[in-house]
Design a protein around this nucleic acid. Structure first.
Lengths: 371, 371
DNA sequence: CATCAGTGGGAATGCGCTTTCCCAACTCGC
DNA sequence: GCGAGTTGGGAAAGCGCATTCCCACTGATG
């Protein structure tokens, strides 16, 4: 990467590098009209492109925002990334991407790499975890973040704080009301239902999953229902599929006929995110079960690409893009912490996948499906 | 962003900055054991993180890969981005993201920004366009890329070369066999069918769309069928939806009864990408039409998140992740141009959305659906 | 014992830019 | 018309690091 330099431009324009610098970048001092014109012409003719590395070095700031996600191809993260990207653009910065599959060790490495590049701020979108095997990794990640913040860096993390992070200056958390929303979802599903509730959760210790599980159980309890059974599996589509296969076997093994109350009890499945729900639905289908006839299912996130899924998936809408945007703005100091402590809200969106369909149940709410 | 510097480490270790630099980064010369240990200890205790900007400036290379996509939340680009990210990791580089919505002016700007950051290579994933309104923008983009290449940069573009780019040193294209695969799809769909074929295409001038349209028509022609009508719309889900609404009206307006041949002619819709197909399918459904009973539909890309869509979407599988990987490797000079001119292959994947279902047609191939 | 290649460390230069400081020329007011 | 204030440009000192060159010292060789 060779390219013409500022001094070359300056020489061609017959001015000093200082002057060239002043006209080519918005300095406080603006040289005279004629000189400015000469310099600009020289720059143009030389195809001058400022060296951002050198600029960064001189100004000690890079115009970079580091973004950490588990997997950029996961629609959840992709949506957040879009928001981050958008906010970055507003700020005139560029985003530096790192994918870590949720491994704290990789995340630590990514933070170090961002720090090395002197990123102005870091946004961590990946769900936090408190799993025992992540303990050491989390500690090191927290230490790395701490160091980054001490050096003046800004960190925003989505959902939960990193385990062990002492909230120093420059450390922000964008809270996501996972628990409350899950409770709300449970409440809505519990209305005039007495289905068997089952939760397909991610690995224990994954905060996002745990919050949603806890919230759902709370909602059930508030409705006077017993806690749902929890099936733990991978936090992705294939995890949902596996769980779905297992559940399908059980649903088929306990036919309605066995029910003493005289009418069918359906299984209502709550998968802690949409892609898991889709996986589970696919599994049920492949086992010959129909939704919502033989079982109902709900997810979480309201992934855009899944909106046209059939049967339309009941879920909890989360403003993912806004979450990304807000995290990015917060890390840039554009949102006062105290001014707006938490502005992320979602809402339960019931669609066909949890509709009541059994005549014997005596209830059949027709819920609107969008578009 | 302040942080401890190399000289601080050197001073603490009681050596010169030169020596510290040699031990802390894989230099050709390796200082003695004891000294190295002292330096490493000093660095550790100071929490030293090398300043990548300064390193880049000194070595004139940045370890950065620029990635240009239309929209990172679009699953097509997200999948490619995953491949790019993966390959970047292999190379020990980081990826810098830019989204442009396909506007050449924005793309030019992104290239300039990457050049300013002295990115080692640039991967352009967005589909190229030859629309008249993009003419000027394309010229400027080509010029910018040219300059970047002349300065030693490496560019890889997915699909088609940028319009007007003179293929200088360091300019690579990863060809995607859109046309051939579309022809193949048409051929498969044309087998023992005499449906009315309709193509939902993107804006004229968008290469990816045009290639697929052209290929599909060729496949139809090769099968002895007349060319399909083309409906042009936006290259995204909502475009597909709009087109679907229009088509639904027509399908409903021309009932089977009107057919002189005595049996029903279905409309077979080819949408030039999966999300458009999904949009169209949603529109048909909302108009009360069923797929594949009242119309069949096929897409292109085989987006992972859409695999569980119902009815399962016939499409053309493209190894998106591999495309991203390969583009990135090529730009890094890891793949000889001549050695492997084109290794991207896809395959037609027929699923339920194009199944024959009308008894009157006398044909009802049961095609396997995956999972 | 003197010379020489070889080794291991440091001084110094430069990567491309920003920014402070400095100085010449100029404008203004009395 | 002259000093004070102002303007506009340049010189130079870094920003943090890699790297070339140089030097002192070692052990081997004739």
């Amino acid at each position: 990467m060779v390219a013409s330099t500022l001094s070359e431009v300056a020489r061609l324009a017959g001015v000093s590098p200082a002057t060239a610098s002043r006209v080519l970048n918005g300095s406080a001092r603006t040289p005279g009209q004629d000189i400015a014109e000469r310099v600009r012409a020289a720059a143009e003719s030389l195809g001058y492109i400022p060296n951002a590395q050198a600029q960064g070095l001189a100004k000690s700031s890079s115009g970079l925002i580091g973004l950490i996600v588990h997997d950029i191809a996961d629609p959840y993260f992709a949506a957040i990334a879009r928001g981050v990207q958008e906010a970055a653009r507003e700020q005139g910065r560029m985003v530096l991407l790192a994918t870590t599959a949720g491994a704290p060790a990789d995340e630590r490495e990514a933070v170090a790499a961002f720090a090395a590049r002197r990123a102005d701020s870091i946004v961590i979108a990946g769900s936090r975890s408190a799993r025992p095997e992540d303990g050491e990794g989390n500690t090191e990640l927290a230490a790395e973040l701490d160091r980054y913040c001490r050096n003046g860096g800004q960190v925003a993390v989505v959902g939960h704080a990193v385990v062990g992070a002492s909230s120093t200056e420059g450390y922000h958390v964008v809270p996501v009301p996972n628990e409350d929303l899950a409770a709300e979802l449970a409440a809505e599903l519990a209305v005039s239902r007495d289905d068997d509730f089952v939760i397909i959760g991610g690995p224990a210790g994954l905060f996002t999953s745990d919050d949603r599980v806890r919230g759902f159980q709370r909602g059930l309890a508030d409705a006077g229902l017993p806690p749902a059974e929890i099936v733990r599996t991978g936090f992705n589509r294939s995890g949902g599929f596996d769980a779905g296969v297992a559940l399908a076997a059980r649903i088929k093994a306990s036919p309605e006929a066995g029910d003493t109350s005289g009418y069918a009890k359906r299984t209502c499945i709550f998968a802690v995110n949409d892609v898991m729900a889709i996986g589970a639905a696919a599994a049920l289908r492949s086992e010959g079960l129909r939704i919502p006839r033989d079982a109902t299912i709900a997810g979480f996130d309201d992934i855009e690409t899944l909106r046209d899924f059939r049967p339309a998936l009941s879920t909890v809408h989360l403003p993912l893009e806004e979450i990304g945007r807000q995290a990015t703005r917060r890390a840039a100091g554009m949102i006062g912490e105290e001014a707006a402590p938490s502005t992320i809200t979602g809402h339960v969106t019931l669609r066909r996948s949890t509709e009541g369909v059994l005549p014997s149940e005596g209830i059949s709410r027709m819920l609107p499906t969008d578009s």
